[in-house]
């Protein structure tokens, strides 16, 4: 039996592919051989069926009120400061009414509301567009409603940034490490690497040890209220059932979990109807 060169090359090629393939297969099978121990439930953690936040703008009075929340968040999570809007990364920030609720503004609204800054962060939507489009499940919705970002898995395609109607997502255009001051680094939380997307996580790492999100702790009393939307007696539910609140872009159907109390103290007092 003799084979010609062409056939020999074909056989050699196929066996090489088969060889490499089977090595990979064995690798995958071996993975499951890890003598896994057990996980223990975390009794200290704050838990909920669906985490939500009420932002009561009437409680924010000075620029420091906002800045304290932003600083607390950005320091806790090692968010870099690039000093330019192009590369900017932000988890929580502010903008005016017109830009927070586009299309809702009109010329004659109270000056106070028109020029006020609103707190902005990820809405942790119940029906998140970012999760729908992610090709690797790097962004996903947890059982407690938090929309989480797995920086280990993100490939940096930025489809989620195109999909998010709230501009809540930032991309690491540059190495963030160089833009966090040495003395500001929170040694208990990682930084990120270039090429991944990040955003607010409702402080999952703090909830896990029984702490409220960093911004909530720093906000003026009652300014940021955090709680379970599925729990009728929770503080957020109490506010939602007694005060008029709005959400950003509700018509898009993403069902944000962040609610806003817009009225300032001045205007929230309703005159009695005669």
């Amino acid at each position: 039996m003799s084979i010609n060169r062409r056939e020999f090359l074909k056989i050699a090629g196929i066996s090489t592919i088969a060889g490499i393939g089977s090595v990979g297969l064995f690798d995958r099978l071996r993975k499951n051989a890890l003598e896994a121990s057990d996980y223990s439930p975390n009794l200290d953690a704050l838990t909920a069926k669906r985490w939500a936040m009420v932002v009561d703008m009437s409680k924010f009075t000075t620029p420091e009120d906002y800045q304290k929340c932003i600083n607390a968040c950005h320091r806790t999570h090692n968010v870099p400061n690039f000093g330019n809007p192009k590369d900017e990364i932000k988890w929580i920030w502010t903008d005016t009414y017109e830009h927070t609720f586009p299309g809702q503004e009109h010329e004659y609204m109270p000056e106070d509301i028109k020029h006020r800054n609103f707190m902005l962060l990820c809405n942790h939507c119940q029906n998140p567009a970012c999760v729908r489009v992610c090709p690797t499940k790097a962004t996903f919705k947890r059982k407690d409603g938090i929309v989480m970002q797995d920086m280990h898995r993100c490939i940096g395609c930025r489809f989620c940034m195109a999909a998010c109607p709230f501009g809540a997502r930032s991309f690491n255009y540059r190495n963030p490490r160089e833009f966090i001051k040495e003395e500001d680094i929170n040694k208990e939380y990682p930084t990120r690497m270039i090429g991944v997307v990040e955003k607010c996580t409702f402080c999952t790492e703090r909830l896990a040890v029984g702490k409220m999100p960093a911004c909530v702790e720093e906000a003026p009393k009652g300014g940021l209220v955090f709680g379970d939307l599925d729990e009728p007696n929770s503080e957020v539910r109490k506010i939602l059932s007694t005060t008029y609140t709005i959400r950003r872009k509700p018509d898009l159907g993403t069902e944000p979990s962040v609610f806003y109390v817009v009225g300032s103290s001045e205007f929230s007092i309703v005159p009695e109807i005669q």
């Binding site: 121990s37 996980y39 989480m148």
Partner: peptide, 15 residues
């Protein structure tokens, strides 16, 4: 890392 980031299980009980 998958357990912590994806499943929010953060406490490991060893053998």
């Amino acid at each position: 890392r998958d357990s912590v980031v994806r499943d929010d299980k953060r406490i490991y009980v060893n053998s």
